[in-house]
Design a protein around this nucleic acid. Structure first.
Length: 574
RNA sequence: CGGGGUGUAGCGCAGUUGGUAGCGCGUAUGGUUCGGGACCAUAAGGCCGCGAGUUCGAGUCUCGCCACUCCGACCA
């Protein structure tokens, strides 16, 4: 590719609305251009990178017997009615009517389409297991996009779906997929990525893993133990909590607490520890006239994902202030009007006494509460967030927290979709059974952002050999001189003929500084400087972008040197 | 969904008490330079987000809308 003709402007300044490094670098290098909120165009370098990543994904998916297919982007309402998700999914799914007034939607995931494809086409156990996957555009109307390609509305995703006769078979295949994913992320050049146990959400599935890139700008919090290797998303993480001294047991008593409405104000007003308070957190249930009130020890926080699972309802944070009979700031577990209200108690309250809880009337709390004596909950459920410094649930060593970007996930779905869509297969006894499913996703655009986020220096991107749009960037200094032009293009053509992708900076009247700066910014793994100075000695300069080490190589052996570097770099990414 | 912020040349920004629009980068042309974002000269490029209102006069003041963006959505 001739740089002079490459569409995509490289700029010095970071646009003011850009907050994270990967976004800034991709914009500055001219790889992406925003079209609308959360919707981007990719210029050629980014698209080539995308294709390189997709090629690696295909190889690894095909290795585990994946069959590449293509589902439609636009689907009819009925297909999604059949799984029940047309109504349970909210406004993140884009819906529209076709010219005949029929309800249609844009695909945000393809479980329904995959079952539709396999149903009745696969009818015997002899045809299972099978895995179908596609690489395709998805649209999700995210409430809040951010971070350039990290969280967008339209994106390219590899999504795969496997079908099995038994959970055991699914589990075996799942492990193979776990390994394939590790291969993919390693091969595209990511380094600080891990797989963690994750939330299975409302799907009721059993096991799920997320692949996370560890980075400060990550949106997810991960709970990690260095000692035994425990790794979990905050949404499902558990911990061992240390015993708490509740002080002296006493009888219940109502106390005036004025306008102390939150835990900080309450502990300050009564001069007590947070561990002696019971926090109430209210949630609404989407689509139902029901509230969920969670009670938890005052020093802890409610983990929404765990609570969601505990009550099996789609809860959303709720503002008790204006629209309910709850007394905001004084909600308590004694005498709470529980009409249309589900109450959940966290495990931290098991055995707690000498506690302060809201009195369910303004300006009053109740102290001296002994939970098992005065409240007698039916059960205690773990709905608390893990805190830094708590102990690993496996080995008891201190846990630490890190942020991560989710770059892929795999999921044992079970029979949710095959049952709801009534897909059966005959087993070896001639009985109709529901196959069990797994699903497997990778965001391609997010992988590009992740590479940019992780692999860079103050000058720009450092692209891994396996995914770089061009492996070689030829900087032709003084290309107005015929010898430079001749040698630079000779190199360019030779690389092309050998199938080595190259970009040549053929711009005239552009200063050397600009050429170097652009090469640094765009981050191709190998740079070759062709200049009058070097050619005087019959040499060209070969520079590795990752280290910026320079070496002078005779013009005749440059291609051989490039081939060696490529081979070395690719070996590291095997 | 709640709360901020910002919309002026392709990009980054300035624009005073209201008086007919500016800087840097980039682009074009000519010239001098040229191994780390060169210099000189000249030029092109604007519905000042959109719509009302106040005013002799609005980029500037008022109201409404739209777009983009950041933060929050653990407050009991």
């Amino acid at each position: 590719m001739l740089l002079s003709k490459l569409v995509g402007e490289r700029v010095k300044e970071t646009p003011s609305d850009v907050k994270i490094l990967s976004h800034s670098l991709l914009v500055r290098a001219g790889f992406i251009k925003a079209v609308a909120n959360g919707i981007f165009s990719l210029t050629s370098p980014a698209q080539l990178m995308s294709l390189n990543i997709e090629a690696i994904i295909r190889e690894e998916m095909n290795k585990i017997d994946g069959q590449e297919v293509k589902f439609p982007v636009v689907m009819p309402r009925e297909l999604w009615e059949s799984s029940g998700r047309y109504s349970t999914i909210g406004s993140e799914m884009a819906r529209f009517k076709d010219r005949g007034g029929k309800d249609m939607l844009l695909g945000m995931t393809h479980e329904e389409a995959s079952v539709h494809m396999v149903k009745n086409t696969v009818s015997s156990y002899a045809q299972l297991p099978c895995m179908i996957y596609q690489i395709q555009t998805k649209f999700r109307d995210e409430p809040r996009c951010r971070g350039g390609l990290i969280r967008v509305r339209e994106f390219t995703m590899k999504d795969g779906y496997s079908f099995h006769m038994t959970d055991d078979d699914l589990s075996k295949y799942y492990d193979k997929c776990l390994e394939a994913y590790h291969n993919i992320f390693r091969r595209i050049g990511l380094k600080r990525f891990i797989s963690v146990k994750s939330d299975t959400g409302m799907m009721g599935g059993s096991i799920a893993h997320e692949f996370m890139l560890l980075t400060d700008v990550g949106e997810d919090t991960l709970v990690l133990c260095d000692e035994c290797g425990y790794k979990a998303n905050m949404e499902v993480a558990t911990s061992k909590r240390f015993g708490v001294d509740f002080g002296k047991n006493s009888a219940m008593e109502e106390v005036f607490t004025a306008d102390a409405k939150d835990i900080d104000a309450l502990t300050a007003y009564l001069n007590i520890e947070k561990t002696n308070t019971i926090k109430a957190v209210a949630f609404a249930v989407r689509g139902e006239d029901t509230l969920v009130v969670a009670f938890i020890r005052g020093d802890l926080e409610v983990n929404e994902a765990k609570l969601k699972k505990a009550v099996m309802k789609n809860i959303v944070p709720f503002d008790a202030e204006n629209e309910s009979e709850l007394t905001a700031g004084n909600i308590g577990c004694i005498g709470l009007n529980s009409k249309n209200t589900l109450v959940v108690f966290d495990k931290s309250l098991e055995g707690a006494y000498n506690m302060v809880t809201g009195a369910n009337k303004a300006e009053y709390h109740i102290k001296g509460v002994d939970v098992s004596r005065d409240v007698k909950p039916k059960e205690f459920v773990d709905i608390a967030k893990v805190k830094l410094g708590e102990a690993c649930p496996i080995c008891g060593k201190p846990l630490h927290l890190e942020n991560g970007i989710e770059i892929g996930n795999i999921f044992q779905l079970g029979t949710k979709y095959t049952k709801s869509m009534n897909m059966t297969v005959l087993n070896d006894k001639g009985e109709a059974v529901y196959p069990t499913m797994g699903c497997y996703g990778i965001g391609v655009g997010r992988a590009i952002a992740s590479i940019a986020q992780e692999s860079n220096d103050e000058k720009g991107l450092i692209l891994p050999m396996s995914v770089a749009p061009y492996r070689v960037h030829i900087c032709a200094l003084r290309i107005d001189e015929p010898l430079v032009k001749e040698k630079a293009f000779a190199l360019y053509n030779e690389l092309k003929s050998k199938g080595i992708s190259a970009l040549i900076d053929d711009r005239e009247n552009v200063s050397n500084g600009v050429k170097f700066a652009d090469a640094d910014l765009m981050g191709m793994p190998i740079r070759v400087v062709v200049s009058p100075r070097g050619l005087q000695n019959g040499e060209m300069e070969v520079v590795k972008r990752s280290t910026l080490e320079k070496e002078n190589v005779s013009a005749e052996s440059v291609v051989a040197r490039i081939e060696t570097i490529i081979a070395e770099e690719m070996e590291k990414l095997k």
